[in-house]
Structures are given as C-alpha cells and as structure tokens.
C-alpha cells in the first residue's frame, strides 16, 4: 500500500520512511492493517526531522507538549470527546515524525489535526467553529472577538483548509487509530479494579490521558499504553497493584516490563517540559 519514497520534495524530512514500508500489507483475505507508527527510543531521541533540523530533544518535547495542550484546550471548548482528542494527538505526533517543527508551527498542525480527527471520529465540527476556538486558544484569550470580520478568522480558516491535505498526506492518509480507552476499560473490568481501588482507577485513567502529551504513543501500542496506565496508576498512588496477592494479573497481560519503562521515561520527559504551560486554561 505505502509508497516507500515519501514526498519527493521533502526528502530531508523523511528519515524514517523505510518504517512506512511496513504499511505494505500483502493483499489477502482478512489480514489486518499493520501500519507501523512505532519507533525506538533512539529514533525518538536523535533522529526525528526536528532533531536533524537542529532542535534539541527538550525543545522538541516541549513543542509537542504545547501542541497537544492546544488540542486538549480547543477540544474541550468544542466539547469533543476523549477518543477524538486521542486520534488528533496521534495524527499530531505522527506528523512530526516526518516534518520539522521549524517548518510547521505546532498550533497550526494541532488545529488541523483536531479538525481532521473530529471528522474521522464522527464528531465533526464546522470549520467556522474550529477556527474561532483555535484563534482564541492561540491568543490565550477566551473573550477575544473572532468573527468573519476579523483578519485572524480568515488566517486560521485558510491555514486549516490548506493544511488539511498536507497533514493527511504526511500521515500517509492513515486515519485509523486504535483506542486505548476501550482497552483500559476492559482491563479494569477484568481485574475488578473498580472494586479494589477507585483511586487507582482514576489515576490510571489520568495517566492514559496524559500519554497523549508525550511521545509514548509513538513507542507503544494502545494495549501497552493501557497496561502501563494500570501499572503506573497504582505506583503513582503508592498502591502498586502488583502488591496484591494475585500478581499474575500482570503476567497475563503479556506486556514486557521494559515497554512500561519506556512509556514512563517518555512521560517523564513530557512532564518536565510542563513549566510555564499550565497557567492558561487547565482542563
């Protein structure tokens, strides 16, 4: 399916394109799509387009954090559900696996990803509504007057409609995102976690929400994210559920511990860049 060369005019950005040849699934009865958007820590640390473009790792992590924060703030004002936020976040992180933050501003791409995810997750919003919300969030001012008379309105509108195709093309038109929330919910039910500790449940859910902001979604499958969330939900609260008598729950989930460690390392990097970003509009 996938063409192994990326967009010819942007070869510099395409360091990882050989990855996408994984998308070349043999056409046969019933094989699932195995598009791979998973990368090693080394790749995420040193070989993204932004890193090759001279941006520091910390700088990239911060831009990603800001972009996802933008998505979350705009989404809550547009009353979009968490699965739309998750899909938009995936598109955003995937986009910057192929393009540099020097060429595309994180807010522009964040707004466009949210606009696309709203459609692909069946929660479509009018471009006009998305534009007004995004312009306000970008100005960090909910009472800003943005309407069809303002220049800002048209700048955002033209930008989103122009970038819609740019983003789609860059993410290889791959809109399918498996939702880790359903998986977490299944685990919670299976482990009877709700009865054991509502606190652990809540903090697992929060952890999963926060994975969006980090590069963890480029390093782990939705299932691995959900398992990490349960694991760390307990650890963060000082109530690791591995201390419970039936420790085999974890073994049954069949996620290697190293994976969970990778997820947590990337989460920690993202949390570090949080400074200064929390003042406006906590969600």
């Amino acid at each position: 399916m996938a063409e192994t060369e990326g967009q010819a005019n942007d070869t510099k950005d395409n360091l990882n394109v050989n990855r996408f040849s994984n998308a070349d699934v043999e056409y046969e009865g019933g094989s699932p799509n195995t598009n791979s958007w998973l990368f090693t820590l080394d790749e995420l640390h040193d070989r993204t387009p932004s890193r090759l473009d001279g941006i520091s790792y910390e700088g990239e992590v911060e831009s990603r954090f800001k972009g996802i924060n933008f998505i979350i703030m705009a989404a809550s004002r547009l009353r979009l559900p968490h699965n739309t936020i998750f899909a938009a976040s995936c598109y955003f992180h995937r986009f910057y696996i192929r393009k540099s933050f020097r060429k595309y501003h994180q807010y522009d791409i964040a707004a466009t990803c949210l606009f696309i995810a709203a459609k692909s997750e069946e929660t479509a919003r009018r471009v006009k509504d998305v534009v007004i919300v995004c312009a306000k969030v970008a100005q960090k001012n909910d009472s800003a007057v943005i309407d069809e008379q303002s220049k800002e309105f048209w700048r955002w509108r033209d930008m989103i409609l122009f970038n819609e195709l740019v983003v789609l093309e860059t993410i290889c038109f791959d809109l399918e995102v498996a939702n880790p929330y359903d998986i977490l919910q299944d685990f919670v039910a299976e482990l009877k976690l709700e009865e054991r500790s509502t606190d652990v449940c809540r903090s697992s859910w929060k952890f999963l929400n926060d994975t969006c902001r980090s590069m963890a979604i480029l390093a782990a499958t939705p299932r691995e994210l959900a398992v990490s969330a349960i694991y760390w939900g307990g650890v963060l609260l000082g109530k690791p559920i591995t201390d419970e008598p039936n420790e085999e729950w974890y073994l049954n989930l069949k996620v290697p511990k190293e994976k969970i460690e990778i997820v947590c390392a990337l989460m920690a990097d993202a949390y570090k860049s949080r400074t200064g970003e929390q003042k406006y509009g906590t969600v």
């Binding site: 699934v25 009865g29 606009f115 459609k119 819609e164 789609l168 809109l175």
Partner: peptide
C-alpha cells in the same frame, strides 16, 4: 466543500485502509 474534505472521503480513507478482505 466549505468544511474542507468531505466526510465521506475521510470515512472511505479510514475504513478502506483498515479493512483488507477478498
């Protein structure tokens, strides 16, 4: 379309990439 790429096209893109079957 004033709201960008038509949602039917988005759906076809999304689902046809996901489903492979004879």
């Amino acid at each position: 379309f004033k709201d960008g790429i038509d949602i039917s096209a988005i759906r076809e893109l999304k689902f046809l990439q996901e489903i492979r079957h004879v």
